[in-house]
Write a protein that binds this DNA or RNA. Structure first.
Lengths: 243, 243
DNA sequence: ACCTGAACACCGTTCAAGT
DNA sequence: ACCTGAACACCGTTCAAGT
């Protein structure tokens, strides 16, 4: 056995893939896309990178931090549509951008939707949303509450969609029939009555419905704030807004 | 060493805690409440029950099924308030019941909010919600969509709350000041402007705001369906409803 | 500065063997 | 029917030692 055949030691000679937080996140994402979050281990990620598992600790604090890195990368690289000046259309645009992103990496999406990210990777969507709400005449404090309501609704909707997976969709006729039968025999009157509707799930239609629902509420609030013109608020607008 | 001091073999002699899916779920919940979901392992749960880890496989299929059992137990034992006949108040009641439950076991809540439960443990809240919506004159199909919108919003809101934990609350003045400063220097105009509001988080106020927001939308839809009187719908109501 | 060998204290799960 | 011993193929992470 020559030296070349023995496992390397020290820094890689040359041409070896540079290890970095981003490269590690990318390798982990690749594993998640194929085999799910459970397939991520320090060892499996290292294997993808052709490196020893312990080397990762030079770039991420621990496994949790590695998963944060994946979530940050997904959230940070998200592209938002240009606002057109209509509140409803612009918020809808952000909502759809989120969904598009989530569906590009459905198995990684729960990471983004579920983790409490301490970094500032996710601030671009926040800025965009606040901008739309503020331009529509919403005081800062209310804008933050509405933002949080929107985020919660998007989170819940997307989380359900990506976790339901392709099995709970509209395609699997046999599964739908089975669920429907079970619901009809649940002994619960309303559930039985709605069995046909409960058994099937069109995720796009459901997403659009829920987004429409919450945007009804948001735009109604915006109209109310505009009529009030901030009465009783400490926050004031410096100029008459509206895009 | 006498026989009594050697580890047992075969079924426990007597008085030993009966192993069961419920007992296992309960033991796991105890661990989660104290040390979080990560503290759950087949071995740690078995230790709580004074039993070998492999014995658990006689009552749960695997670790995933064990966690499902915890989620089912939490969801199944939830008590819902009696409806009073007012849609908004009754839906609010269900929302608050969910939150109360989640806050009783904050570290276990993500399990319930996140898992795709195949069992029928969670149907009671579904029945209750459908009943409220149907009694208010909502056709079955729309009722299911509204139900899903409500669930998504509650899920997203509660998930954020339990995951934020006590550190991201209103109590930690130093943390708020730190976050605020960071947001002010983010380089994003709207984020900086709203830094004070973004840095703090009153979970009860936020929950109430979001629930209020979505209920505005739901009640507006109900009013619209009532005026339409189901025009263009295949679903019809057998009697004039409204509680 | 970045990598690895050796090592530690864990995991989930199978399967045959006990009672 | 329900339990365990022995065993397998894994984990995350530390720390000293290499280059």
């Amino acid at each position: 056995m020559t030296a070349a055949h023995r496992p390397r030691r020290g820094r890689p000679p040359r041409g070896a893939p540079q290890l970095s937080r981003d490269a590690i996140a990318e390798a982990a994402l690749k594993l998640i896309d194929v085999d799910g979050t459970d397939a991520v281990s320090m060892r499996s990620v290292a294997r993808v990178l052709g490196v020893d598992a312990k080397s990762l600790y030079n770039h991420v604090a621990d496994k949790d931090d590695l998963l944060d890195a994946v979530a940050e990368q997904l959230l940070g690289s998200m592209r938002l549509p240009e606002p057109v000046g209509d509140v409803r259309a612009d918020l809808l645009g952000i909502g759809h951008a989120f969904r598009r992103r989530a569906l590009e990496h459905p198995r990684a999406a729960p990471l983004v939707l579920t983790r409490q990210l301490a970094s500032f990777e996710g601030l671009a969507p926040v800025e965009a949303t606040l901008n739309i709400l503020r331009a529509a005449g919403c005081p800062t404090s209310e804008a933050v509450h509405l933002l949080r309501g929107l985020v919660a609704t998007l989170t819940g909707t997307l989380l359900r969609e990506v976790q339901a997976g392709p099995t709970y969709g509209t395609a699997d006729a046999a599964g739908i029939a089975r669920r429907r039968a079970a619901l009809e025999h649940s002994g619960l009157a309303r559930v039985a009555e709605a069995a046909a509707e409960l058994a099937r799930f069109d995720s796009t239609a459901e997403y659009d419905f829920t987004l429409d629902l919450i945007l009804d509420a948001v735009t109604a609030r915006l109209a109310a704030y505009r009529n009030d013109d901030g009465a009783g608020q400490t926050e004031r607008l410096s100029e008459t807004p509206q895009g």
